[in-house]
Each structure stands twice: as C-alpha cells, then as structure tokens.
Nucleic acid binder design. Structure first.
Lengths: 359, 359
DNA sequence: CTGAAAGCGCTTACAG
DNA sequence: CTGAAAGCGCTTACAG
C-alpha cells in the first residue's frame, strides 16, 4: 500500500469538519445535512479517498472477505466452481482469498491459520477432493463453512453437491443398457465422500442388473489424468479386461482414453468410457466423452449464496442449521460409449483399426 | 470472524504483563527474556490466539496481501499461472485476493477499487487477454504491478511473458516447413499486445518464406473455444480455404478442431492446426494438438517472485525500474499438423473419410 | 445536524 | 527486560 492512501482525518481537515462527520457523510448517514455530505464527498473524490477496509473491519468485526480453499485450481471442475463463487461474492461486496491446499495436510493447516489471521467471514471449500481430517480444523474457526462436492456432518458445515449416488447410477445404467456386463470403476483415491457415493451407485446398479461385482474391477486413481492413465493401464493388463469403465471424473477419463489409445485399442470400439463433470474439454477429446454434467458455476454461485445468507444472520442462530443442497446433473451422451464388441477374441492388441462408434 | 477471536490484551491479562510485552514475546523480540516469552507463547497457544492481520497492517502499512486479477479463471492458461502465483505467495507469507475481471470495463474498475480498499501490497495480472485501458487504472494505485502474458510500458509495470513474436515464428515456420502456403491466423480479439506480437510473427514468417499475406486469412476470434469454432467456420466457408491454421491459443484451436470435424473434414488430413500454450488437454484432443508450450506455472512463480523482490525494497526506489522477463517456450509436435494434401480438388465437404496423420 | 471520546487489535518509539 | 503512551484509520454510542 506504500503508505500513500489518504485518510478520513485528512478529508476532515480539508473540509473543516470532524472526522466523525466525514465518516458519516461518506456512508450517507441521514443525520448529515445533504449539502455537507455532498461537499465532503466531493472533496473525498477529488483527493482519491478510499476507505481502509482493514480499519473498518476492526470496529465492525466483519472483514467482507471469504476464504476459498481448493485442492487444485488447475482442475477445470474447481475453476468452474470458483468462477461462480467469485461472481456472487463480488456482487455482494465480498472479496475472496484463494488458497490452494493441494490436499497436503501441512499446507491445509497453514491455510486455516492464514484464514484465521485474516479473520475471513466465511469459508468455501471448492474441492474435487478433500482430506477428511481437514474439516475439523476449519470448524474450529467458528464461522460458516460451505463445502462443494463433498459433505460432512456437523455444525457450521453446509454443502452443495450433485446427488452423487444417483448420478453414478445413471452413468452405470447407461453402460448396462448398452449391453455391458464387465464394467470397471476407476475411483479417486482422495475423493472421500463423493468417491464413496459414486462407488455405491456403481455397486447398486450392478446388483440391480444382476451383475456380480468383481473386486479387481474397482480401482482408485491418484487425481488427474495421469492417475487415470495408470489405472486404466492396469485394467487393460487384467487377464479378462472390462468392456466399459466408469471414471470418477473427466480428468481420470481423459487419462483412461489415453491409456486405451496407447494400448492400440480404441474407445468405444474396444472399451467404453464414461466420465463425470462435463468439464469444457469433454466435448473435444478423442472420442468426445460421454459424461455426467455438473452445473459447476451454478454450484459455486449457490454455495456463495448460502454463505451470504448465513452471514446475514447472527452466527449463533445459524450454527446448527445445516444446509445440504443437492443439484441435479445430466447425462450427456457423446461418442465414448457404444455396445460391447460381439467377438470376445478380438482383444489382439496390435492389428485392428478402430471401428466407428455405433451411433 | 464472528467476534470470537482473542486479543493480545486478553493474553496480557492472563499472563499478568502489559500488552506490549505480549506483542514482543509473540514476535520473538530479543529484548524479552526467554522465560517470559515462552510463558506468554504457551498461554497464547493454549487460548488459540491468532494475531489480527488487519490490526497489524494498520500500523505496519503492509497487508501481506496481493491482488491477482484474471480475465477468466476457467482458462487453463490462467489457472496454471495462478497455481504458480499462489505457491510462491504462500511461501512468502502473502495471501492472494482473486478477482475475475471478465474483460468487462465496469468490473475492472470495481476490481481496482476493491484492491485499493483492501490496500493490497502489489498486483498481478494473470490474463490471457487484457483490456488495454485497464492498466492505467491499476497504475494509479502506486504499487508494483506485474503483468503476465502481456506487457505495457510505464512506471510500476513489470511483466513476465514468453517471446510471443519468436514463438509465433516457430509455429508458422513449422507449418511452412511441412509445405503449407495457405496459412491462416485466428487471433484473439481481446488479446492485445500478445495478439499483436503473435500476428507480427505470423506476418514475418510468411514474408520470409515469400508467401503473400492474404487479409482474408487473418481473423480475430472471441476468447475461448466457441470463438475459435466460429472463425474456423468462416475460414472454411472461404472460396479457397487455408490448408493450415495458426491459432492464438489452444482454446481457440480446440474450437477450430471442432468446426473442422463438424464440416466433415479432418485435421490434419484436410487442414493442419496449431495452438499455443500447451494446456493440459492439448494432448487429449482429437487429434492431439501441435502447440507452443508455455511454462505457465513457472511464469506465475516468476511473476510473484518479482513482486516479492519489489516489495522488499522502498517503493520509490523501484518505481522506475521495470522488469520485463522473457521465458522461452517449446514447440510440441503432436498430430494436428501434417503435409498439405496434394490434390487441390479434394475439398468435397461430404464424402471422404479422414486419412491418418502423416507421422 | 455535528463533535468529542472511546475503542477495535495491533506495533513501536520512548522511558525507565 | 518491561511498561505507558501514542497512533494506524475507521465506526459509533453519547452529548449537545
């Protein structure tokens, strides 16, 4: 800030009034005469006066800031959410501190400390994954918290999520209806609650379809495309490989598609792949990805909206009332899914060329 | 902050010392006896004391915050940069306010105002584009500013960029060397300086190769894949369409690829496409994209590093010394580029199937 | 309608 | 080594 900023005191001096009057005039306090107010405002504008939010926050006990913690800003799901958060925050006069926890426990504690020292009014956790030990630390701050894409029980904890279980059922049912019976799940090893729910949806759907679960078809990947690539390689190396794969998210699906290409196989001819999220690239992959669309930006907006609502009321009143908002997703069928191959012995990994999707 | 936080005064009371002593003990001032310091620190820890940065900043005139303004957080280039920024900021005890200007003039002024009111110590502009009228507003804050991917002359303005002109030359030369002569450029209508430089590199390279510039081959797209899609459609509708396209960035290239597919044409068989940035999806597109890799996260780190350096010295001393750091990119050849087709009359938009890339 | 006073939570000369 | 005082830039009862 370079010590340049002008203060209320200076304006008071210039306007020949007390600094209390300046403060009131600037905040449009009705007790100040219109002309005095105008005069002061003009002077303030002329001299480029801008109130110090820090000074104000000391007395109002509100900083008009919120902390937004993400596990990776480079994750398009997260970026979509943060866009919505920022939009609503801004519209309501809040600024957002962005912190990247990277899922690293030490870093997470650091984030908590910094948010505390900055006295943020509330916290938003926009993570596609979330260390489960993390939330208790956040809770100590005794301010409202809204989780996006994960939920946890307890005071101050609110959430905005898609119905992960139902959404997973839709995805797996899509595969079953195409005729697949060898369906694998590539989960996210740090996906926490959302991963468990998607897994549960997968299991239930197989069960409903009378398909026996195979434990070797359920794997967990590290976050991001590379993780998906590794686990897909593993699945492809199985004696009897799956004919379809449900991925925890689009990033993992991207990696899976790459592994399939690398093995000289083709999606969906040899193996169908579905993702989750519908990040913007899902329609640009090779092949375009069938996925579950999450309204990411809307989720961010909604989460920030809840926070604002919570912040408008006395904290004690809101601490035990937990919001758990479910938004709905949408199956987007593109070209990474098709009926399974008829001939079981086509699995020669070198010769054949991709056949076009059956669509 | 819910008014819960404990203050130095409370600790002073508990420790039976003055609050000045507490302040010193907590900051490890050597003038405080080791045992008093320890005792106070223990008490502070027990009671979960955390200093108020707002209060501290009032006297130190440093907020330990920086403002980071982006045009779109959903742009993977920006996300990569912000990741690096956050990392270094955090390591040096700075917190980052994220603001999304959306390239909207009104919103930009708002961002300036908010940063000013929060008395941020410095500003980072991580934009793939930047309204050119914007920087002068920022400059009024009289704090160091570092631009990423754009540069502007003037006090307090520093930058970290790739050498756009040279990088553009590399990309276009790659196309020329493959044998292309009908090369188009899809620029970014709000790309400002970086767009102008890439365009200049394009022009120079054509000239060096003795290829006449065709003004109908130079178009400007709105940011993002949709913009690229529109402009590619336009180029494809030309009586004589180009055989290769250089895109301002990967996002535009993504849209271009989609338009090509939609026209039942194929890249690179019918038309070669190159992007810029090497965002993580570039290797997952259909076909995988040939592009210019920018070290996005490293650029973010570097920019924040410069800001920290600048903030460590008296402002007056740094105000006229401008850093303009160039980082180098790298041509990444994937599968979206190939030699042009021999037969000029293969342009029938319906019949033919893609032929594999000549690679 | 306006002002003087107190206070928010800190840091830092200035004394002792 | 420790404390009392002043001050950072605000807001807000309390007086008048």
């Amino acid at each position: 800030m370079a010590g340049k900023a002008i203060s209320i005191k200076k304006i008071a001096h210039l306007a020949q009034v007390s600094h209390s009057t300046v403060s009131r005039a600037l905040r449009n306090n009705p007790r100040i005469s219109a002309e005095t107010a105008q005069r002061i405002q003009r002077i303030a504008a002329q001299h480029g006066y801008h109130p110090s939010l820090a000074a104000r926050s000391l007395v109002t006990r509100r900083t008009q800031t919120i902390g937004c913690v993400v596990t990776s800003i480079a994750d398009p799901f997260v970026a979509g959410v943060v866009t919505g958060v920022e939009e609503v925050a801004n519209r309501h006069g809040y600024s957002v501190f962005l912190a990247n926890s990277k899922g690293d426990a030490k870093r997470e504690l650091d984030v908590v400390r910094v948010f505390r020292e900055h006295r943020v009014d509330g916290i938003l956790v926009a993570a596609s994954r979330l260390g489960s030990e993390y939330v208790p630390h956040l809770r100590k701050l005794q301010i409202p918290i809204v989780l996006i894409n994960n939920l946890q029980p307890g005071d101050f904890i609110n959430s905005v999520t898609i119905d992960n279980l139902e959404a997973a059922r839709v995805m797996v049912r899509h595969l079953v209806e195409l005729g697949h019976r060898e369906i694998a799940y590539i989960g996210d090893e740090s996906g926490d609650q959302s991963n468990r729910e998607r897994l549960a949806g997968y299991c239930q759907t197989l069960q409903d379809a009378g398909i026996a679960m195979r434990s070797d078809f359920v794997v967990e990947a590290a976050a991001g495309p590379e993780g998906g690539e590794r686990q897909m390689e593993h699945l492809l190396s199985l004696p009897a490989r799956p004919s379809a794969v449900f991925c925890y998210d689009d990033l993992i699906a991207l990696g899976a598609l790459k592994a399939i290409r690398r093995a000289k196989l083709s999606a969906p001819a040899d193996i169908s792949v579905v993702g989750f999220d519908d990040i913007f690239v899902a329609s640009y992959t090779d092949p375009p990805l069938t996925t579950m669309r999450q309204p990411m930006t809307a989720m961010g907006r909604r989460a920030m909206g809840i926070l604002i609502e919570l912040l408008s009321r006395p904290f004690e009143e809101t601490r035990t009332e937990n919001w758990h908002v479910k938004v709905s997703g949408e199956l987007v069928v593109r070209e990474s899914t098709a009926r399974p191959q008829k001939t079981k012995e086509n699995q020669d990994a070198t010769s054949q060329q991709p056949t076009p999707a059956s669509r």
